[in-house]
Nucleic acid binder design. Structure first.
Lengths: 264, 264
DNA sequence: TTTCAAATGATCAATGTCAATCAATTTTAT
DNA sequence: ATAAAATTGATTGACATTGATCATTTGAAA
């Protein structure tokens, strides 16, 4: 039925279309449908795979499953993973059943979300993180509310005036905030302007504020300032330098240092 | 009934699906259903067991205990998949670059989202579906806004007063709405009260309204009424009965019928 | 417990698929 | 018009998958 498709862009479109319609196709079938050689189809599939549009499997290809797009995010999630887990465990111990908590959209906070999923307790959870919310699908005794707003692809968070407006109507017992960086002068920084603004609103709407930041974040900076550290208590890991431990005392910041070697 | 399935990924899907439908199956039955040898089915089952999707027992295999919740959603997504894809393709042709559209949180609408991801155009997209939003991560030229609200686990949607309040501040060129059921008297129904209420607000805030419903939905009912069909145009598939085609004319509903066999 | 048929996993030959290479062709730049 | 670059299709050796065979294990009946 299909005609030969001679130009590359058309071919790629045709492959996308064919794969979308059929869900899966062998390379031979694609070659027949398009009128190109097997070698060319393979090359095209390589390109489409790099675009993330399709998944290649032995014998053919199919349209990509949804969440495979978050490769960059997943890589970031794995960095300093043991530190993040230790921090998350310390944070988990601070939770009280039947309270309202806000979970920020960071990779460290995501570890806390995982802990709550594995070890559930009745909570009202608010978040602006898509991945955080996803952790709580089908977990009983949780009331999960996601902030509305504009989707920020970098960390799958929701930001913007709509998110801030929604925050104004809410109040939390505990806030667990991530941080892109913590500067030498003791301030929390973010890489994104909208995120920084939203983080400030979170701080303003919470009774108890915790910043979850692994030790590698200390002494670095990012573009947008969120707030001074003394607005919150800090939970970090035992990799923190002597210097920074002293600094935190100087800043008058209440810090919890999670032991990296502690197994639970 | 089943055809021979020659490629590994297809087979794995077929086995998952077969086991989900029957709960348990002998290896011989799977081999017959799939058209592969016993040895191959065993190897496939090994893979699925490693994935944790199934439990193997002497003489056959069954669906793994834990994963059955997530599988349920995936299976629902795959039901009438070709119809949903055909409908989504027809809906995609209605899109105009640089307009504002709302995508409901249904499995049929999800196919439309997938199509937009694979074949992007500049759009402002609003949705109350977590999975829908996730499709659009890292897609350039899209502005994606997620409605805030309470997370409904059954279909990963956001509902409730906060979602409705946010809707009141927005206006869409096109709405693409899913439907749990379309009753004999020509009304859209939903299985959830909050979802139905929210759907009504969506309809009120959109200039052009499209209901995406595969033909199996017609003549069924669910608990909560959303709105009469004539509030919107219908996009369905060519599996629709003669009777219902006439009924749609009687109701004065503008219907688009996507051809199931059309390949492009 | 013993027995035995069915089920299982390992092995092997045959077939199918993949990535790399290269020559031929088309496209693009000069 | 010519040279350079990119694209294409065929070929090849490496690799993966499949189905049949066979020795071993398993579960249930005697």
């Amino acid at each position: 039925m299909s005609q030969a498709v001679g130009v590359k862009v058309d071919r790629l479109d045709a492959i996308r279309s064919h794969l979308y319609a059929n869900g899966f196709s062998t390379i031979q079938a694609l070659a027949d449908a398009i009128g190109a050689s097997l070698a060319t189809v393979r090359r095209d599939l390589q390109i489409l795979e790099q675009e993330g549009a399709i998944d290649r499997v032995h014998g053919g290809a199919r349209i990509a499953e949804g969440s495979s797009v978050e490769v960059a995010f997943q890589e970031r999630e794995k960095r300093h993973l043991s530190a993040k887990r230790a921090i998350a465990t310390a944070a988990y111990d601070l939770l009280h059943p039947r309270t309202a908590i806000f979970l920020d959209a960071g990779t460290t906070v995501l570890q806390l979300a995982r802990l709550v999923r594995i070890n559930p307790m009745p909570l009202r959870i608010f978040t602006n993180g898509l991945t955080v919310a996803q952790e709580f699908l089908n977990i009983p005794n949780l009331e999960v509310v996601l902030l509305g707003g504009q989707l920020r692809s970098e960390n799958a968070s929701l930001v913007g005036p709509q998110a801030e407006a929604m925050l104004e109507t809410l109040w939390f017992d505990q806030l667990f905030l991530g941080a892109s960086a913590i500067s030498a002068d003791g301030a929390i920084y973010s890489v994104d302007s909208a995120e920084a603004s939203l983080n400030r609103r979170m701080l303003a709407r919470s009774a108890n504020r915790f910043v979850l930041a692994d030790s590698s974040k200390f002494g670095t900076t990012a573009t947008y300032k969120v707030a001074p550290l003394d607005n919150a208590k800090v939970i970090t890991d035992s990799g923190l330098s002597r210097h920074w431990r002293d600094e935190l005392v100087n800043f008058g910041v209440d810090a919890t240092i999670a032991d990296l070697r502690a197994k639970e």
